[in-house]
Amino acid sequence: MRVHLAFAAPTRLWRLTLDVPDGATVEQAIALGGFAQEFPEFTDRDLSTAIYGERCDPQRVLQEGDRVELCRPLVFDPLESRRRRAAHRRAKSKRPA
């Protein structure tokens, strides 16, 4: 069966289409795709996995056409970033012209 792998590295987007045996898991597809050889700097990090943007367990059995996504951890909290931008806008609007 054919599945797709995707990973957004800091410097490039890695996409791969490969054939895996029926009953293959997310983890097996990642190994078959050669992710560890392509990105050795990420093998020691805790990457989460998703299928079409929905988080999934690495032991999930794949279906024909699934797109497996490897997700890097966030480097910042999006909620905190929104708070800082809002505070900056409020401070900027209170300044005299």
Rank of each mutant, 00 (worst) to 15 (best):
G34E: 02
T17N: 14
L74G: 09
Q63G: 08
V61D: 06
V3N: 00
R15Y: 08
R45W: 12
A87L: 10
D46V: 14
R72E: 00
Q28C: 05
S81E: 13
L47N: 04
E64M: 14
V26E: 01
R15T: 13
A24G: 02
R55Q: 08
L79Q: 15
P73T: 09
P40M: 10
A91P: 02
S81G: 15
F76I: 15
A86H: 15
P21A: 10
P78H: 11
K92H: 12
A8P: 03
G33Q: 00
L18E: 01
A24T: 05
T17F: 10
L62N: 00
E80A: 15
F35P: 06
C56E: 02
D46G: 14
F35T: 04
C56P: 00
P10K: 07
R84M: 04
W14R: 07
T43C: 07
E38L: 08
R84A: 07
S81R: 15
D22I: 10
A86M: 12
D22L: 13
P40N: 09
P58A: 10
L47T: 00
A36Q: 11
R55I: 05
L47Y: 05
R85E: 02
F42M: 11
G53I: 03
C71N: 10
V61K: 13
L62F: 01
R72M: 00
R82S: 04
T11W: 04
Q37Y: 09
V26R: 00
A36L: 08
L62H: 00
I30H: 02
I30T: 01
L5H: 05
A24S: 07
A29Y: 05
R72L: 03
P73R: 09
T11K: 10
A29R: 04
L70D: 04
D57Y: 11
R45H: 12
D77F: 03
I51F: 05
A50F: 04
S48C: 03
E54L: 11
P78I: 07
E27K: 15
L70Y: 02
L62G: 01
L62A: 05
H4C: 11
H4N: 14
S93E: 11
R95Q: 14
L62C: 06
E27L: 12
D46H: 15
L47G: 01
Q63S: 12
Q59V: 09
Q37M: 09
D44S: 14
P10Y: 02
E54R: 15
R84N: 06
R12K: 12
R45G: 09
F42L: 06
V68N: 09
S81F: 13
L74I: 06
L16A: 14
I30A: 03
E64K: 15
Q37A: 11
R84H: 08
H88E: 04
C71T: 06
A24R: 08
W14M: 01
F35I: 00
T43K: 10
A9D: 03
R55H: 08
E54W: 12
R15L: 09
Y52R: 13
G65S: 10
D19H: 06
D44Q: 15
V20N: 01
